[in-house]
Design a protein around this nucleic acid. Structure first.
Lengths: 185, 185
DNA sequence: CCTATTTGTTTCGTGTCGATACCAATTGGG
DNA sequence: CCCAATTGGTATCGACACGAAACAAATAGG
């Protein structure tokens, strides 16, 4: 019954240190999280609801965070012309510039100093745990676009890569970013 | 320059999900954290300042969290008679009982369902990263008492286990709990 | 059309958290 | 021995986090 090592203790403590690091530059941890996400998500996935699903927060909370970021001039909101309920988010120049000073880089750098094979094992383990957790709560996995079943490679007969689900062509950049619609199988 | 996998993304997301889980039973995530810590710390380490160091928060924040837990009847505070500046914290019966319904157990259980060797690799990786991070910011490691250099085994000539640093005898329980003073080397 | 659903926003109450000022107990140097 | 300096905690402030619930606007689907 008594766990010798409790994984929750590690996640909790590392998560808290990561969070405590990210109180810099007048931004709060959640605001850094959102900024980081927007930098890595493709254009279909830079919306408030995608952010909501990605971090498992409520839409009210996300709305507040985005409002703060917009007020600070770090992100911009535009209505999707095709469905005016959707808000498209994007980093402003200031937002991109600020991300270069991401305080989380401290931990990123420390992780990078670990032995390569241990890094790989750690990432594999974290990923497995994350996938199981997402599965457990029926959430989407948010993989990278080009790993998706709906991703269609560029061929001789097709001018560019495409998303078969949304029926649009994809830039190389888009296909390497995080996508809400990602379905790995 | 471009990281294929960013460990911060995993820690951030898993940490956030863990945190979002722990809004149950009228307690906030930090309050669960504190409760969990108090259940695993030995008697020298159940103080506000130990908690402060363990989670890397400020003492003001910790003070607030503990005030809330005391108000809810989950912990008790007593002055150390030897140094009346020190506050000794302890879980009340209600606190211990509540911990049995720790919402973080969901993730704990999911982690338990992973392959044993992958679990071991994950924990080893998390621990390595944590140690490096702590080292980087000059914090204490907070290991388990009996792994400490100041720990003295029970022998034929000594009635019980001892802590050579604080010069006190230790119960078996104490020696298996987290200690602020732990110095592994 | 006219309701139901989807997507976001607003408001509210409790709590977090760093910063700062503060207080009481202890320690230590002259 | 005494008066700073230090140590361990608390109080207050302001910005924000967060779930919950009420709301608004656009779209979907009979």
């Amino acid at each position: 019954m008594k766990d010798d090592v409790d994984i929750v203790l590690f996640l909790e403590r590392l998560g808290r240190m990561l969070k405590n690091d990210t109180h810099a530059d007048g931004l709060k941890p959640s605001q850094w999280d959102a900024l980081r996400y927007l930098a890595r998500a493709n254009r279909f996935s830079r919306t408030p609801s995608a952010l909501t699903a990605y971090f498992g927060m409520t839409k009210g909370t996300v709305s507040q965070t985005l409002k703060a970021l917009e007020r600070k001039g770090l992100i911009a909101k535009t209505h999707d012309p095709l469905d005016r309920r959707n808000i498209r988010l994007s980093l402003t120049k200031a937002g991109s510039a600020l991300l270069k000073r991401d305080p989380a880089s401290a931990i990123r750098k420390i992780a990078g100093s670990m032995a390569k094979d241990q890094q790989a094992e750690l990432v594999a383990g974290l990923n497995a745990l994350l996938q199981l957790t997402l599965e457990d709560r029926g959430s989407k996995s948010f993989g990278v676009c080009k790993t998706c079943r709906y991703f269609e490679e560029k061929t001789a007969s097709r001018a560019s890569q495409r998303c078969k689900l949304l029926d649009v062509s994809l830039s190389v950049q888009d296909s390497e970013l995080i996508c809400v619609e990602n379905i790995t199988l």
